[in-house]
Simulated scan of single mutants.
Amino acid sequence: MKGLYCKPGDQGDVKFLLRETDVPNNIGNHEVKVQVKSCALSPVDFKLFEELKLGKEHISVGREIAGVVLQVGPKVTFFQPEDEVVGILPLDAELSGLCSVVIIDEYNLVQKPEKVSWFEAAAVMKDGLRAYTALHTLARMAAGQTLLVLDGASPFGVLAIQLAHFHGVKVLATALSAEDQKMLEELRPSVGVQESLLARVIKVWDSKESLVDTCLEETGGLGVDIIIDSGVRLFEEEPETQLHLPHKHDLITLLAVGGHWVTTEQNLQLDPPDSHILFMKAVSLSFLNDEVWTASRAKQGRYLHILKDVVEKLSVGTFRPQLEDPVPLYEATVSMEMVQKKQARKRIVLKL
C-alpha cells in the first residue's frame, strides 16, 4: 500500500515521494479503520511541525479524507462498519491520507451526508474549518457587518465569502488577476435570489484601484468591520513575490472602530504607532491557526461541531468549493509540489 510523504531537505528544499507503508493489524479502543475514497492536498507547515517537535524523517501528506468505515475499536460509539465518514488526520498521523486504508481516532471524524460526493467532502474540510475559525471563533461575525476577504478567489477565500453571505454579512473581496475577478463576480447563491455574493470585487492587480479608498467608499468612510488577510507586507521594500500583498498600514487604516483583524501572517510586527491606532479604534487582532483544533484537545467538542456544520452546509449548497478535476494517485507528487508552492488556484483532490 502506497502513501504520500515528504522529506525536508537541509537547505529548506522539500521532496515529495510515494512510499510503501503497512497498516497496523490491531486498532485501539477508540480508533476506526477507514477505506479512503478521496484525499485533498494542502500545504505542509514545516515550521509548525518543528515547533511542536513532530519532526520525522518522513512526514505524512494528505490529511483531509473521505471514506468508508471498515472496522471499529471495542469502545467506539460514534460509528459502525460501512458508515460513510469524512475528517482530518491529526498532525502526528503515521499514515498518509493517500493510503488506501488508514486508522484514525473516532473523535477526528464526522458522518458524511449521503448526497455529498467523496470528492467534495474531502475538498471542503480544511477550508471550511478555516472559514469557521476565522469568522465565528475569532471575528464573532454578525449580520449587517462588512467583511473584507483578501485573495477572495483562493479556495479558502471562496468558502469564507459563502459563509459570510449566508449569515447576512456584506462582503468585499480582492482579486489578484482578471481571471480571479471574473470568477468572483460570477459567484451566486445556490438557492434564492441569484444576486452576487459580493458587494464589490477590488482589482488589486489594477494599479488604478486603491484598496483603502475603495473600502472606505463602500462603507461611507467608516471602514470594514472584519478583515481576513492572506499575508501582509511588513515593510515598504519587499520581495517581488509579495508585492500583491497589502501593506499592514493599509489594513490598519481601513479598519472600522471595534473591528476585527484576522491575520494569517505568523511574523506580524506592529510598531508602537501601529498599536496606538489599533488602541484608539478598539480593534481586536487575531491570528488564524486552524491547526490549533487538532494540536490541542481542549475544545474537541466544538471542533467536531464545526466539522459537522461544514459538511451540512456542503450538503445544502451553502458551501460550493472551487475544485480541480480529480487527480489519480500516480500524479500525487507533482500535484503536491504545486500545492506546496501555492501554484494551484483551486483545491486539488486525489481519487483513490
Rank of each mutant, 00 (worst) to 15 (best):
2 K>Q: 15
2 K>P: 15
6 C>K: 10
7 K>L: 00
9 G>P: 05
15 K>A: 13
17 L>G: 13
28 G>L: 11
31 E>H: 09
35 Q>W: 05
35 Q>N: 13
35 Q>P: 01
36 V>Q: 00
37 K>R: 06
48 L>D: 09
56 K>G: 05
57 E>N: 01
66 A>W: 07
77 T>E: 02
79 F>S: 08
85 V>L: 11
85 V>W: 07
97 G>W: 01
100 S>N: 11
102 V>R: 13
103 I>P: 15
108 N>V: 01
111 Q>A: 11
111 Q>D: 12
113 P>S: 08
116 V>C: 09
120 E>Q: 15
124 V>T: 08
125 M>E: 04
129 L>T: 14
130 R>C: 10
137 T>Y: 01
140 R>I: 08
147 L>R: 13
150 L>Y: 07
151 D>A: 15
153 A>R: 04
158 V>G: 07
158 V>F: 12
165 H>E: 06
173 A>W: 03
175 A>L: 07
179 E>Q: 15
186 E>L: 09
187 L>P: 05
194 Q>D: 05
198 L>M: 13
208 K>G: 09
214 T>S: 15
217 E>F: 12
222 L>V: 13
223 G>N: 10
224 V>P: 05
228 I>K: 03
229 D>S: 05
237 E>P: 00
238 E>W: 05
240 E>C: 07
241 T>Y: 02
241 T>C: 04
252 I>Y: 06
253 T>A: 04
257 V>H: 14
264 T>Q: 13
267 N>S: 10
269 Q>L: 13
270 L>F: 08
270 L>S: 01
278 L>W: 06
286 S>M: 03
287 F>K: 09
294 T>G: 07
297 R>C: 06
305 H>G: 03
306 I>E: 02
312 E>L: 01
316 V>C: 12
317 G>Q: 06
318 T>E: 09
327 V>H: 04
328 P>Y: 11
329 L>Q: 06
332 A>F: 04
335 S>E: 05
343 Q>T: 05
346 K>W: 05
347 R>K: 11
349 V>M: 14
350 L>N: 03
